[in-house]
Design a protein around this nucleic acid. Structure first.
Length: 572
RNA sequence: CGGGGCGUAGCGCAGUCUGGUAGCGCACCUGCUUCGGGAGCAGGGGGUCGGAGGUUCAAAUCCUCUCGCCCCGACCA
């Protein structure tokens, strides 16, 4: 490709609305342009990386035995009504009507459609296992799209769905996908971790997320410093193997705490640490229950764990008027003593005695409070947010480390949730109808490219690894008006094309400074500079974008050298 | 959904408080010079100031409504 005839609109300045580095660089390098909030054009240069990502995914999926198909973006509402998600999915599901006033939605994921395919075309266990995948544009009307391709509303996703006759088969399908995902992200040169995750709105029983490690990641992850355990912070289990129920030693005492509402206020006022306080949260659930939740003063509630414990869709902190009604006190003085609603306490609270709690009255707290003696706990359970330093639930002595990650892939074991709801059965070897056991597996294509940029850039621009780079080699023709330079660069360009190397020839009539700055910005892994200075010696200059390493190579050796470097997939 | 901020040329911004008929840098076009890390000089094109309504002799500027975009929050007890 000739730069002079290509559409590669680079920006000298960072667009004002781009916050994270991948978004800024994708804009500046002319890879994407925004059309609306969370909706982007893939410009020619960016599309090349996207397509490479897709191809890596496609190859690994095929190798793992999955079969590519393509389902529609516009989904009939009736399929979603059948699964129950038409009501349940919420506002992220973009719904609309066709001219006959029939319900439709833009597919945010395709369990319904793929289940419909399989129930209509697969009748026997002999046709299983089956894994169908597609690489397709999805639409989710996100509350807050942000960070360019990182969280768009419209985005390209690879989604795969496995169908098995039984759990054991589903486990095998899951394991294959898990391995395929490892291969995919390894091929992209990404630093990532597979972590245990909450299965969220898609539903199901078990799942892993593939997290690319990056400061800008939206997800918190913890991993054990000793064993293999790693999990999304939403899911990370906490288990106290030596925790004993604490015994009360102090008497319960009511004390005045005028205007001391927050944990910090109360701790300071009583001259104790937050660890000696137990905070009482009033929580409202999707089933319209109100419960109290007890946590050590410095801990945070994990509302996903709580929702799972209570078997509800969501469990959120109650509105102020509900708190006032339940506690008969102003907000800030809730406590477990005398409450009539169920009280759920974090496991950690079991080991606490003689603590401070709110008094359910204005300006009153209790000290010397004890569960069992002063109030009853409906149930102790793991309901708090994990933090660095917490004990590992899987091994003895391991401690959590924490970091940020970008979720680029997610594998779920779904079970029979959708096949039951949509009556997708096959006959088993005894001739009986049996629900299919499903799994689903997604990769955010654009997000993975963005994540790769988060991990591979410097202050001058992109440094995408060879497998994802839009081109493999940039030939930088300095001063096209110099006949010798032009002819040498043109010849090199033609030769590289003929051996199948993806080459961009910068034949623009621009000053060297502009060409070098653009070269660094767009970050093609290998740059060959053809200029009068080195050409006199019969050489061109070879520079690796990622390392900055630079060397002169004879004109008649450069094609071989580049072929070799590209084949190795490495910057030298 | 709540809070904050911003919409003026392709990009980055000034002008808005204090109303007087739109400007700077980059980019773009023409010419000359220049040519190994974002050149110089000269000339030039491009904006219904997000939209609608209102106040006024006069509105980018003041008022009302509206649309779009960005950020933060949605864990206060």
């Amino acid at each position: 490709m000739r730069y002079s005839q290509y559409l590669l609109p680079t920006l000298k300045e960072t667009p004002a609305d781009a916050e994270v580095i991948s978004h800024q660089l994708m804009m500046r390098a002319g890879m994407i342009r925004k059309v609306a909030a969370g909706v982007y054009n893939y410009m020619p240069f960016g599309l090349r990386s996207i397509r490479k990502m897709e191809q890596i995914i496609r190859e690994e999926m095929n190798k793992a035995g999955a079969i590519e198909c393509l389902m529609p973006m516009a989904n009939p509402g009736e399929l979603w009504q059948e699964s129950g998600r038409w009501e349940k999915y919420g506002k992220e599901l973009l719904r609309f009507k066709d001219r006959k006033n029939a319900d439709f939605c833009m597919g945010p994921t395709h369990e319904e459609v793929v289940t419909d395919i399989v129930r209509n075309t697969v009748n026997s266990y002999r046709q299983l296992p089956l894994n169908l995948y597609q690489i397709q544009t999805k639409f989710r009307d996100e509350i807050r799209p942000r960070f360019g391709l990182m969280r768009g509303r419209e985005f390209i996703m690879k989604d795969a769905y496995s169908f098995d006759i039984d759990d054991a088969g589903a486990d095998k399908s899951y394991a294959k996908m898990y391995q395929a995902y490892r291969n995919i992200f390894n091929r992209c040169g990404l630093k990532f971790r597979a972590v245990e995750a909450d299965s969220g709105a898609i539903g199901g029983s078990f799942s892993h997320e593939f997290m690319v490690l990056a400061e800008s990641g939206e997800d918190g992850i913890v991993s054990c410093d000793t064993c293999e355990y790693a999990a999304n912070i939403e899911k990370a289990e906490l288990y106290y193997r030596d925790m004993e129920t604490a015994t009360a030693t102090a008497p319960l005492q009511k004390i005045d705490t005028p205007d001391q509402r927050t944990i910090e206020d109360v701790a300071d006022f009583l001259n104790v640490t937050a660890q000696q306080l137990v905070k009482t949260l009033i929580v409202q659930t999707s089933k319209d229950e109100v419960v109290a939740v007890l946590l050590r003063g410095d801990r945070e509630l994990n509302s996903i764990k709580l929702a799972n414990l209570l078997d509800v869709d969501w469990a959120l902190l109650a509105e102020d008027d509900v708190i006032r009604q339940v506690t008969a006190a102003p907000v800030g003085f809730a406590g477990p003593i005398g409450l009539t609603i169920p009280v759920y306490a974090d496991s950690e609270v079991r080991g606490m005695a003689d603590f401070v709690v709110g008094g359910n009255a204005a300006d009153v707290h209790y000290i010397g409070a004890n569960h069992g003696r002063d109030f009853a706990v409906t149930r102790f359970a793991d309901i708090r947010q994990a933090v660095a330093g917490d004990p590992c639930p899987r091994c003895d002595g391991g401690k959590f480390e924490s970091w940020r990650g970008i979720e680029v892939g997610h594998v779920f074991k779904l079970g029979t949730k959708y096949s039951d709801a949509m009556n997708a059965t096959v006959l088993n070897d005894k001739g009986q109808a049996q629900s299919l056991v499903m799994g689903c597996y997604g990769i955010g294509v654009g997000r993975t490219v963005a994540a790769a940029i988060e991990q591979n850039h410097d202050e001058n621009g992109l440094m995408l690894p060879m497998p994802l780079a839009p081109f493999q080699v940039l030939v930088c023709m300095l001063n096209p008006k110099d006949d010798e330079v032009r002819e040498a660069a043109e010849k090199l360009y033609a030769e590289l094309e003929s051996v199948g190397i993806e080459v961009l020839l910068d034949d623009r009539d621009e000053r060297p400074g502009i060409k070098f700055k653009d070269a660094d910005l767009i970050g093609i892994p290998l740059r060959v500079t053809v200029g009068a200075r080195t050409l006199k010696e019969g050489n061109v200059e070879l520079k690796a974008r990622a390392t900055g390493e630079q060397t002169e190579v004879a004109v008649d050796k450069i094609v071989n050298k580049l072929e070799q470097l590209v084949a190795e997939g490495l910057n030298f």
